Computed example of a mutant assay.
Amino acid sequence: MNRSAFSPAQIPLGLVIWSLWFVAVYGAQGLGCELAPPSPQAGATTWLNAALGLFTALTLALLLLLAWRFWRLAAATAAQRFVARLSAGVHLVAALATAFIGLPLLSLPPCL
């Protein structure tokens, strides 16, 4: 596999990370609710929401870091600037999708 930052394989990486996060979060939520459901009286302040929120924050930080990295690479080099900027944009869109889908973890009980 080509490890160059300007490889076209970098373009879908943000959406791949987002899709893996999406499957992991909803799979973990389902397993957590099946194996050790938190008390419904706790509302959104449960161990399950805290774990999923931490995983979401780490994924969001990774996607934003990658978006920033590719944007800086595009500004630093004239060669293959298109691939780097497109990669940065895709990572940013994936970060926004992660934040948008992850925000309900802060306000909704996990096992309704």
Rank of each mutant, 00 (worst) to 15 (best):
P104L: 10
Q80P: 00
G30P: 04
A50V: 02
A51C: 03
A28K: 04
F82Y: 09
W18N: 06
P37K: 07
F82E: 10
A74I: 03
A75C: 14
G53N: 08
F22Q: 06
V25F: 07
P12Y: 12
T56V: 03
L48K: 05
P38H: 02
Q29A: 09
N2Q: 05
L15K: 09
T46N: 05
A24H: 09
L60C: 05
Y26I: 15
F70W: 10
G14A: 12
A78P: 04
A36N: 12
S87K: 03
P38Y: 00
A99I: 06
L60Y: 08
F70M: 06
A5D: 11
R3H: 06
M1E: 06
L105D: 02
Q41S: 10
A79Y: 08
Q29M: 12
Q29P: 03
I101V: 13
L52N: 04
G27A: 11
R69V: 09
T56W: 04
Q41K: 07
V16F: 11
E34Y: 14
L96S: 13
A51E: 01
V23N: 11
W68M: 11
F6L: 12
W71H: 13
N2L: 07
V16N: 12
T46D: 02
P40Y: 08
L73D: 01
V25K: 14
L64Q: 06
F70K: 00
R72E: 14
W18A: 11
W68Q: 13
W68E: 11
V25C: 14
V23Y: 07
G53Q: 04
P109W: 06
A9Q: 14
V16W: 08
S4I: 03
V16Q: 14
L35Y: 05
A95T: 04
W18I: 05
S7E: 08
L52P: 00
L13R: 13
I101E: 10
A28Y: 03
G14Q: 07
A5C: 12
P12W: 13
F82T: 11
P109R: 04
R85Q: 09
L106F: 08
A5Q: 09
S7Y: 04
G27L: 13
L92E: 08
G27C: 12
I17S: 10
L35A: 15
L64E: 10
Q10H: 09
F70P: 02
A88V: 02
Q10D: 15
T77R: 15
G53C: 07
A95Y: 00
T59K: 01
L105W: 01
A36F: 15
A61G: 11
S19A: 10
L105G: 08
H91N: 14
R3I: 07
T98C: 15
W21D: 08
L86S: 04
A79V: 15
W18P: 01
T56G: 01
G102V: 00
P8Y: 13
L103K: 01
W47Q: 04
F70Y: 11
R69S: 07
A28V: 03
L64A: 09
Q10V: 15
F55N: 01
L52R: 00
A44C: 07
L52W: 02
Q10W: 08
L60H: 05
A61T: 10
P110E: 06
R85M: 10
T45I: 07
L66G: 01
G14K: 05
G89P: 05
L112Y: 10
A88M: 02
V90P: 01
A74V: 00
P110W: 06
